[in-house]
Design a protein around this nucleic acid. Structure first.
Length: 259
DNA sequence: CTCCATGTTTAGAA
DNA sequence: CTTCTAAACATGGA
């Protein structure tokens, strides 16, 4: 489920691999490369070591020695695993990095929607891909600036990576639910008090999800996510949840709690 | 077989 | 210029 919390948990999962030499590289996803090719990527990684990591929105960056950064985007079905020496390789592994200690970092994409790339500068990469500020770097004031003049629906604005980076279909529903705001509210019309509530809800939801996912624990039951299924009920009021079709996506909400 | 899915990009219509 | 809609991409799962 790669939105900001998932990608941040993958980033944290790389910590034990930092400073360990990458002894073997297998790039099997040549169609997922954009600004590089499999040979260049292979040569950049083999013999190097990850020395630093960053995340911007749904993109993960890992610096190879003092050189370029590996860029990973997980699309709808990707994930990053750190495998023990005796662990079997998951199906749909499309990038495999063997470390000198016998563990493997594997990029697993069930569908080949996503990107594997190299960049000299994550900030320049983010600009080139038109990414807005990272969702965890925004306060209520910054959120207001991002949403001003946006006449479309607030859910569409939150999912627009050039407005706020990191939020997708699932977490936009989650944040709007906790902010008590309808997904079809006009973004620019959300007033200051409700922006505060929305910003606070966003921070709480994202930070909670990061902590839970990074430690491999389930999400708290007062989130909407565990309840988004047919006949699911609102964890706050117990009423029935609704689904709408918005921005070509299925949107889950509680019609009683969100106005 | 049909429909749906956590994302992004692009084209075309308002 | 902004906003919305649809399609394409790729592929498994219900």
């Amino acid at each position: 489920m790669p939105e900001l919390p998932d990608v941040e948990s993958y980033r944290r999962g790389l910590a034990p691999a930092l400073h360990r030499r990458i002894a073997g590289v297998d790039v099997r996803a040549s169609r997922m490369l954009e600004d590089t090719d499999a040979d260049v990527l292979h040569d950049a990684l083999e013999g190097g070591a990850f020395e630093a990591t960053q995340r911007h929105g749904k993109y993960l960056f890992a610096r190879i020695d003092d050189g370029p950064w590996l860029v990973l985007h997980f699309g709808m079905t990707g994930r990053l695993d750190h495998l023990a020496p005796d662990a079997p390789e998951p199906p749909h592994t499309r990038l495999r990095l063997e470390l000198e200690d016998g563990t493997r970092i594997v990029g697993v994409w069930k569908r080949r929607l996503g990107r594997t790339d190299l960049t000299r500068d994550p900030a320049a990469f983010a600009r080139a891909h038109d990414l807005g500020p990272d969702a965890l770097a925004l306060d209520a004031e910054g959120l207001g600036v991002a949403l001003q003049d946006r006449r479309g629906g607030i859910k569409a604005a939150l999912m627009d990576q050039s407005v706020v980076a990191g939020i997708g279909n699932v977490y936009s529903d989650e944040i709007l639910f906790h902010g008590g705001i309808r997904p079809d509210a006009v973004a620019a019309d959300v007033g200051a008090a409700r922006l505060d509530a929305l910003s606070e809800a966003g921070r709480r939801v994202l930070e909670t999800a990061v902590e839970r996912l990074a430690s491999d624990r389930p999400l708290p039951d007062d989130l909407l996510l565990p309840h988004r299924r047919p006949a699911g009920s609102c964890p706050r009021c117990g009423g029935g949840l609704a689904t709408w079709q918005l921005s070509e996506r299925t949107c889950w909400l509680c019609p009683a709690c969100q106005h």
